[in-house]
Design a protein around this nucleic acid. Structure first.
Lengths: 206, 206
DNA sequence: GTCTATAAACCGATAGAC
DNA sequence: GTCTATCGGTTTATAGAC
């Protein structure tokens, strides 16, 4: 019965995938809560409910498991990008992505992508799956930025890089954390406020 | 000769002050470069050129020496605030402070003040000298924000807290680091770009 | 693959001589 | 106050039994 054998193997692989997904869930949440340097593998193991040694059977190192978590997040971002209506104006596409990122951040599931001061950045550079997805996302965003600048909905006088970096940076803006800690606003309020500040600024021209 | 004795004591205290200032310089730079958690006391000692044990004769702990460094930075900020021409419009005063903060950041002397994910935040809360200066600065900024909103130069529809937090957050904006790493802009260019994005946003209305 | 137990390295803080 | 040397605790990663 090759069929049964194949099914059993497939089932085992499914279980493996499920377990690794649970690990990445924990890593993702801990990365968002404490950052890479303060996250310990003991915490991850305890959170998943397995022994630390078992963790290392699935992922080589702390760097690799963090990079894998970030890669999965990038895939989610690309899924959001792919789900956008093609006829939507480029500025609205960009706003939708930033909106998704801030919502993810507020939900406690956004690892600190742009942080020059973390040891994880170097590891990400040498993790091709992540870099590939980052490249795809950057390319797509750059395209929309150019289109929005041509249409005049984004300032043509601003260098594209500045806009691109700002989009990424707002995904981890500590302002969201401060406002959430204050407790005076709902998550939806905070998202709207940050979107407004990011694109319209703070001057009183509205 | 009480005068001579007093002078000698004063000289010794001056030397002490000088040494402690050198320590705070190193801490300040390392905090800006690596953040609190990645900074080690061995590095600080090596950077100052003294033994680690000597470091602990001047400051009780890693937390305290970091808090002292941040307090000194707050004093510098308050000096900048005090040096502003009183007749300057409130929005210009606010911009001047943000400008100073970004310049300090680019010079590698801005520790990561607003970071929910660092162990230093809790230590700062229980370090009265820092909290006092933070309160003074916050009060002054809040005053200017209210005035600017009344004058219509800052959007009256934005909650004051949002503007306040944004001002603090832009002092550590990773966008500045990214642009500096890119090498395509001078520090002065980066400051102007960030000031523009912070206050005018990215939409093409200028 | 999962576990317990442990190795190896690092870091904050201190002891004790000078 | 400054130094060398070291303690105590934590963390990453692995060994070896099952």
């Amino acid at each position: 019965m090759p069929t049964t054998a194949t099914k059993k193997l497939s089932f085992k692989q499914q279980q493996l995938q499920f377990r690794e997904n649970a690990i990445l869930d924990a890593v993702n949440r801990l990365l968002a809560k404490k950052g890479f340097d303060l996250m310990t593998m003991d915490e991850v193991a305890a959170d998943v409910g397995i022994a630390k040694a078992s963790l290392y059977k699935h992922f080589q190192s702390k760097e690799v498991v963090a990079a894998a978590s970030m890669t999965r997040l990038m895939d989610e971002a690309l899924t959001v990008v792919g789900a956008l209506a093609p006829q939507l104006p480029p500025l609205d596409k960009i706003k939708a992505i930033v909106r998704w990122a801030i919502q993810t951040h507020l939900a406690g599931a956004m690892p600190l992508l742009p942080s020059t001061r973390s040891n994880i950045q170097q590891a990400l550079l040498s993790y091709p799956p992540y870099m590939e997805r980052l490249g795809t996302l950057t390319e797509k965003l750059g395209e929309w930025i150019g289109q929005a600048q041509e249409a005049g909905t984004l300032s043509p006088s601003l260098p594209g890089e500045v806009i691109l970096y700002t989009i990424f940076a707002r995904s981890c803006d500590p302002v969201a954390d401060f406002l959430k800690m204050g407790g005076a606003f709902t998550d939806a309020d905070i998202v709207d406020l940050l979107i407004h500040i990011t694109f319209e600024g703070m001057t009183g021209r509205s």
